[in-house]
């Protein structure tokens, strides 16, 4: 699955019949998932979302205040579609007080760190713990090492990420919002790991 082939069609990707979580059985062919991005400030959460949703990289992205929302639908090979409702949160520590508002009820949490910053890796671990305690029990978690294009500045070895993710039952991937490397793969892999409602 190359990046380009998996780029969702932005117009036809919309779901024909949205399935409301609250009422009625979820449509197993058209999933809707709430996804939240967590991680230290400046690790590239907003850039990852913008790359995924708009296909752009803006080296001078805006600081996220509070949180911001974007949604994107992808089609999988088995012809199911997954509509991601993405909450991109603010990274500064004090905004962590507001994070539960956004991760509560989320089906997926993407915890991002910057491979050039050990601090951000520590912060990622904090988020994983917080989610294990307070997130939905069946939440799908992904650990993402971003800015993989900055190999020469790498300070967090790949193996550290792999190990930590494995220990915590997470999916791990290194991405670059700048080069678009692994961005679509990240979301596709998440989609594959979603618990499917029994098809009727």
């Amino acid at each position: 699955m190359g990046c380009s082939s998996s780029l969702p069609d932005r117009t036809s990707g919309r779901l024909a019949g949205p399935n409301i979580e609250n009422g009625g059985a979820p449509d197993p062919k058209n999933l809707r998932v709430k996804l939240v991005l967590l991680g230290d400030s400046g690790v590239g959460k907003s850039c990852i979302v913008l790359r995924f949703v708009r296909g752009q990289f803006d080296p001078t992205s805006k600081v996220t205040v509070g949180a911001s929302f974007l949604s994107q639908t992808i089609a999988l090979q088995d012809s199911t579609t997954v509509k991601f409702e993405i909450w991109d949160t603010a990274g500064q520590e004090r905004y962590a007080a507001l994070a539960p508002l956004y991760y509560r009820g989320a089906a997926v949490a993407v915890v991002v760190y910057d491979i050039t910053s050990p601090d951000s890796f520590t912060k990622a671990q904090y988020w994983v713990k917080e989610l294990q305690k307070h997130g939905s029990p069946d939440i799908v978690m992904a650990l993402v090492g971003n800015k993989a294009d900055l190999q020469e500045k790498r300070e967090v070895p790949v193996q550290d990420g792999i190990d930590y993710a494995e220990k915590n039952g997470m999916f791990f991937i290194e991405t670059s919002a700048k080069t678009a490397d692994n961005i679509n793969q990240l979301f596709e892999e998440i989609a594959k790991r979603l618990p499917r409602p029994p098809s009727s």
């Binding site: 409301i20 509070g66 929302f69 909450w87 508002l101």
Partner: peptide, 21 residues
């Protein structure tokens, strides 16, 4: 409520940014 949307998800960022952006 029916859609599962909390008002604060949206109003939180409004208030914190005093509508800037």
């Amino acid at each position: 409520d029916y859609l599962g949307v909390q008002v604060a998800w949206i109003s939180g960022p409004w208030f914190l940014s005093i509508f800037v952006n």
